[in-house]
Simulated scan of single mutants.
Amino acid sequence: MGDALFPFQTCLNASTLFPYKLDIREQLRVAAEAGYDGIEIWMRDLEAYAASGGSIAELKDYAASLGIAIPNAIAFFRWADMSETARHDGFAQAEREMRMLAELGCPAVAAPPYGDVDGAGPEHFAAHFAELVRLGRSMGVEPYLEFWGRAKRLNRLEDAVAVLDLSGIGDAKLLLDPFHMYVGGSRFESVGSLSGDRIGIVHANDYPAEPPRETIADRDRVFPGEGIAPLGRLARLLCDSGYDGYLSLELFIENFGGRTAPDTARYGLDCLRKAFSVDHIEGARST
């Protein structure tokens, strides 16, 4: 949990463990034993667990026995697709998946600009996001609006904020990710205009100077503090906004060498706490 030097909660995005090919129960165990407060699961892993005969109710009990929360899920449904047919199917998928998440006790799900959104404007996104939020809330699951730096539309923080404002849902929330902010050209200072209660969750990662912004890919992300991202400044802005929620370590490193899954999880937690610690931030303010 957060404290005076680290006023956030820690979370491990299951993507970080993908190279180890763990099932969802093993992912939960590794995250809990490493000391994280929560884990972000991926819908594909939950669906694979259920398809193999696993009980979602038992998985919920297992997470509780480990003392680890499941604050958010990563999903990909076409809620904003330009095709009405694809969008209809996307909402059917979203309803099915959010019912599973509700049974698991997971209170939120990511809603990125997945699908054909090339011709979508802010009003299009806003109308369908509002529809998605109403659907999710009817089941007790909150969609978090996510922007992707490489998307043709909804690729900057400023765009996401505009969509939230246009949606007419005053307490709707977004998902922040420094990698996507960098790739899409978002201004990190724009976080300073946000109130913390508009932020659902923050993905934590870093990126190197090379490859350059134009060609850098998800697999090039590095542990917090090992790249050039202004994480100290981001953490200060988050603190000032009043945000004290989860920072979720989301990496897509394809090979960790000889490091085991528990080693990677523990190392990532240490990097996370150091890169976003208040004493680190204070020390960086004079630089």
Score class of each variant (00 low, 15 high):
D81S: 14
G54S: 15
D159Y: 03
R187D: 08
G227S: 10
R259D: 15
E103D: 15
A126G: 06
C239E: 10
F18N: 12
L231D: 03
P224D: 07
R87F: 00
D116Y: 04
G119K: 11
Q93A: 08
Q27N: 12
F276S: 00
S277Q: 10
R137F: 01
D89M: 13
T264W: 07
G115S: 07
G38N: 11
D270F: 04
R134M: 11
W42L: 07
G257L: 13
G121N: 08
E189F: 01
A126D: 01
S52P: 04
I199R: 04
G257K: 02
M181P: 08
I253F: 01
E158Q: 14
I201N: 03
C239T: 13
A275G: 10
I281N: 03
L176C: 12
E146Q: 09
D159M: 06
R273C: 07
A284Q: 13
R221G: 06
I24T: 08
G136W: 01
N72A: 15
N155K: 14
S248V: 09
D240Q: 15
Q9P: 01
E58A: 09
G115R: 03
E26M: 04
I169M: 10
E282P: 08
Q9L: 09
A209I: 15
D159Q: 15
L157P: 02
L59D: 00
G192H: 09
D177P: 03
E210K: 14
T260G: 05
A94T: 05
V222W: 02
A217V: 11
D23H: 12
G149A: 07
W148K: 08
E95D: 13
H128E: 14
A110C: 12
G232Y: 10
S186E: 01
Y49A: 00
G67Y: 03
D240C: 09
A57H: 06
P19Y: 11
A130E: 06
A102Y: 04
F77H: 06
L166K: 14
M98Y: 01
F252N: 14
D3H: 13
M43A: 07
S195E: 12
V117Y: 00
G283S: 14
L145H: 02
I56V: 14
R44V: 15
E210R: 15
A86D: 04
A111T: 09
Y62E: 10
A75M: 05
A151E: 06
A31G: 05
A204H: 08
A92V: 12
I39A: 11
G245V: 10
L251Y: 03
H128C: 09
D218G: 09
C239N: 14
A34W: 02
A229Y: 02
E58G: 00
A48G: 13
G105Y: 05
Y207I: 14
D3T: 14
V133S: 04
E131V: 03
R219M: 02
R273T: 10
A94D: 01
R87E: 03
E26Y: 03
L269V: 06
G53F: 12
K21R: 13
H180L: 12
M181C: 11
Y36R: 08
A57M: 07
P19I: 08
A209S: 15
P122H: 08
Y207M: 13
E189K: 09
A204N: 10
K274Y: 10
D165K: 08
